[in-house]
Computed example of a mutant assay.
Amino acid sequence: MERRTFLRASVAGAGAVAFSGSLWQNAALATPAQNAASPYGPLQAADANGLQLPAGFTSQVVARSGQTVPGTSYTWHSAPDGGACFADGTGWIYVSNSEMSGGTGGASALRFNSSGTVTSAYRILSGTERNCAGGATPWNTWLSCEEFDNGQVWETYPFGGTAVARPAMGRFSHEAAAADPVRRVIYLTEDKSDGCLYRFVPTTWGNLASGTLQVLRAGTATSGSFTWATVPDPDGSPTATRNQVSGAKRFNGGEGCHYADDTVWFTTKGDNRVWQLNLLNSTYELAYDDNLVTPGTAPLTGVDNVTGSSHGDLYVAEDGGNMEICMITPDDKISVFLRINGQSASEICGPAFNPAGDRLYFSSQRGTSGSSSGGITYCVSGPFRR
């Protein structure tokens, strides 16, 4: 089967979630990504931070769990997880979830000036549970998602304001969210071995207080057509949202979710896959499957958070594996972009580009210690394709 061509998208505006440009052309269903040399060249020896990067790229540590963020008086949270960047004048803000239990979760923010120096750090959500991933909105809020059976989506305000729960978006084991400004919906993944993919249709775009929760319906194959069906009871009690609609398609451990150019990509950790929804023709397919990679060994395992660059490259972080961020290029080639050494008991979380696209932020949730209190948040700078 001939692979459709993904032409470059460009990040638009402060939310860093709306994209313009050409589409994945609907020519034929895809062959999942295959091994290839990285467009950036081979990884170099580990730097002082333990990161192996391509030539021309450098890393820095911007925050460590339990320690004061340099240049501020704020103590960075434990277990950093999903994240996103927002334009802030000539600088930007990076937000990061805290995947802690017992009401000690939440989210924090780092504010950077135009040179990439932290100017302030602060809390934007407190007292919540297992805030795993989430997603940015075009109106500059961060959707922080709770990963447990009765979890909610919390809308938070990186530029100031009190976080608000959005129960209309469903109560289930939330993972990630991705905003689609064209259809005016939010896509939501569910971290269960028999989880589903949802979309929330707000009554009014820009206001998540009310709306309709829908679930994707499709067959059991890895490609085909899909439809959406309304979930009768988004509260998920007594019947879980994933069990309310006949024919809802099951996905094995939904994780990261990313929207661009009439396409949604999302990952499933239980089977090491990256899925692709083609929204113009309502079809789905595999963008990556570690069992279908040739030649050699699949580089990406433990698939987790995903983001995209303005060039159209997808960056997929590993939960475990060998602690890599891998990239899938527009011509369906997969390669390793970076590797973190000496942190095998951790996972990589929250990859997100700054508005200019020349800095990639992400965290190692448990760092070198293997403990939630040992999280490390990094920035990698360099000649990213834009």
Rank of each mutant, 00 (worst) to 15 (best):
T128D: 00
T128V: 14
T128C: 09
E129R: 10
N131G: 03
C132E: 05
C132M: 05
A133N: 12
A133R: 04
G134M: 11
G134S: 14
G135I: 02
A136H: 01
A136P: 04
P138W: 13
W139L: 04
T141A: 00
T141V: 06
W142M: 15
L143I: 15
S144W: 12
C145V: 05
C145H: 02
F148D: 07
F148Q: 11
D149M: 15
N150L: 05
G151N: 06
V153H: 01
V153T: 09
W154E: 04
E155A: 00
E155N: 03
T156E: 09
Y157T: 05
G160R: 11
G160N: 12
G161H: 07
A163N: 11
A163R: 09
A163I: 00
V164R: 13
V164I: 11
A165W: 10
A165T: 11
A165Q: 15
P167L: 15
P167G: 10
G170E: 10
R171G: 06
F172C: 00
S173P: 00
A177L: 02
A177Q: 02
A178M: 08
A178W: 04
A178D: 01
D180M: 08
D180W: 14
P181G: 05
P181E: 03
V182W: 11
V182E: 15
R183V: 06
R183E: 14
V185R: 06
V185H: 11
V185C: 02
V185N: 00
L188R: 01
T189M: 10
T189A: 02
